[in-house]
Amino acid sequence: MSILQILDIGLAGLVLAVAAWTVFARDAFAAVVGFVAYGLLLSLVWVRLFAVDVALTEAAIGSGVTGVLLIGAAGRLRKLEASGGDDELPGASLRLFAAALCIFVTLVLAGVVLSLPDPGPTLAPEAARHLAETGLGNPITAVLLSYRSFDTMLEKVVLVLAVVGVWSLAADQYWGGAAGNPRGAEPDGTRALLAQVLPPLGILIGIHMVWVGADEPGGAFQGGAILAAMWMITMMAGLTEMPSIRSRLLRLVLVAGPAVFVAVGVAGVAFASGVFAYPTGFAKPLILFIEAFMTLSIAVTLPVLVAGPPKRLRQQ
């Protein structure tokens, strides 16, 4: 057994242990913290699968932004439920039945997954064959923004719908207001300092990730998520505030990504071979154009989703 294998097995054990912690921890907040750690470990697994783009996305969105969303929720729930005591587990027989079911599912899945052909069927050669047409070097960006761009565009619409859904949970009197907590000058200097030091660095890294995403691992999702994280840091430090949900600029940025995507896609009918096709030779610039707007939309959508529905009227 090589060192790498030992390392892999150790990593697998660690991932499963932390995952089990998030399920079995007594305290919800502790479970959430476990989930953040779990996300970090999972990105290591993704690197071991040679899926660096996914590792980046998992680190940024799966662990980073989702983690912050859950930490915030767990913190607020803890404050709201002063009494507690409502986390009694269901009866032993149900738990036993659930455990049996879950073990069964796991075993069946593991069996089936191991039976999958190796080397398996793949679209990698197909993807490689068309890569030149797109002018890109990163095949994953080519899948996301060219071969299956329709999926990606629709997924941006999912984000927009999520924003509408989250906003719809506002109290009526706060409609038109803003989410988040108003803060005065921060007494705590550490956060303010971090909020001044990190974002310039983060913005640089975020933009870098989008830019290199055309040829190297990276792209609009990962870069956008880093930018989102930076904006959220400055909000947490009280340096910036969530805009009003009725702000025209905010809405413009929210829909810009999918709207530009749809516009370029439909323009393909006139200028290329069909909808969501790119004119020969213009694929790469158009893809970068779309990605720029997508990055912007993601950078704003993620914090808006984390911030939740509007909770106060901004100017009154």
Partner: peptide
């Protein structure tokens, strides 16, 4: 991810 890894090619 493992489906992708098993599809390493080209």
């Amino acid at each position: 991810g493992i489906v992708a890894r098993k599809g390493a090619a080209a």
